[in-house]
């Protein structure tokens, strides 16, 4: 049920693009205005979010330590899981951002006969890695539309990605992985009881968007029926990036579906959970080194508080202290 409305929303977007372009011929709206608007919303929103977090102070030094601290010289510290300096923090963040280190830790113990065996529960990690990396590579591949002459690294990536050399045009491996990973992430939300219990409509919406984006892209590339005018696409995109936008007709409707879903994703990004992408860099349990006993962490809004002073304490208990032989300040 929670999936239905987000699904309908994406269907609505698809129809909107089809009707808008095919029936109403609003090439400029869907080819230029919407992408620009989305880019603007994305940029402003993204900056707003990051600035807002950045301006919020980190009053306390709260890294989550996941290994041995640096203490006595003969005890080997775990410099990455419990970093004592910037180098360790950078390494920890890199592992977290590029390899999803914490998700990787997800282990489950099973009894094999009488003995314990540690099996690792990597599915979420694997699904997450597959999705994020294939998405990234696909985005990089799309850079071919953003440059007059395609940069060599992009060409190299395209070559590697199609190395299986299946079909014409050659199948991109990342396309398959992307669709499979998004499908997996969707399926675990509707099948695993624990995940089902915590899922909100807002979790389905981006998944459907991504599925829509992936499917429209794949149809465009591999199915003759949907094939679009790539030269026209490049012309449109180059116009957009060079800030000399011009509506291009005759590209093929499905391209506008693809573009509208991408625009929606971008516009939606800063206002949703998708902000975890920049957010992870600012996470105080991960990006601080465990050196709070070595360097004083300053809280910018630290303020004086009412305490019960020793003097007040002694006034309360002076006689009793004297009786017990505890030294006092004033006899």
């Amino acid at each position: 049920m929670k999936a239905l409305l987000p699904f309908l929303a994406v269907v609505f977007l698809v129809l909107l693009a089809v009707v808008g372009v095919k029936a109403a011929g609003l090439y400029f709206v869907f080819g230029v205005a919407v992408p620009y608007a989305a880019a603007a919303v994305f940029l402003l929103g993204f900056v707003y979010r990051v600035v807002k977090w950045g301006k919020t102070p980190v009053p306390f030094h709260i890294p989550t330590t996941c290994g041995q601290q640096k203490s006595l010289p003969w005890i080997k510290p775990n410099g990455i899981e419990n970093p004592s300096g910037t180098g360790g923090v950078v390494a920890r963040m890199l592992l977290e951002v590029f390899l999803f280190r914490s998700l990787f830790k997800n282990r489950k113990t099973k009894m094999k006969g009488e003995y314990l065996s540690y099996s690792w529960a990597p599915w979420l990690w694997l699904g997450g890695m597959a999705f994020h990396w294939s998405f990234l590579l696909i985005v990089v591949r799309h850079l071919r539309f953003f440059f007059q002459s395609v940069p060599a690294p992009v060409q190299g990536l395209e070559h590697l990605d199609s190395i299986l050399n299946w079909g014409v045009p050659a199948l991109y491996i990342t396309d398959v992985i992307f669709l499979a990973a998004v499908t997996f992430l969707f399926l675990r939300r509707v099948t695993l009881s624990q995940v089902k219990a915590i899922t909100l409509p807002a979790d389905f919406f981006p998944l459907f968007l991504l599925l829509g984006i992936g499917c429209s892209g794949v149809l465009m590339r591999y199915l003759k029926f949907f094939r679009v005018d790539v030269v026209g696409v490049k012309e449109l995109v180059m116009g957009l990036v060079s800030l000399h936008p011009a509506a291009v007709s005759g590209i093929g409707t499905i391209f506008y579906v693809h573009l509208l879903l991408i625009s929606t994703l971008f516009a939606y990004f800063p206002w949703s959970k998708l902000v975890h992408a920049p957010g992870v860099f600012l996470s105080p349990t991960r990006n601080l080194s465990n050196n709070s006993r070595v360097v004083r962490h300053v809280n910018p809004w630290n303020y004086p508080v009412k305490v019960h002073t020793y003097e007040e304490y002694e006034n309360d208990f002076r006689e009793k202290m004297k009786m017990a032989g505890v030294p006092v300040e004033r006899e």
Partner: peptide, 16 residues
């Protein structure tokens, strides 16, 4: 006052 609070309320993706 707390980046931790604002950030943690914003970025959870409910991965489980």
């Amino acid at each position: 006052k707390y980046r931790s609070l604002r950030l943690f309320l914003d970025i959870c993706v409910r991965c489980g």
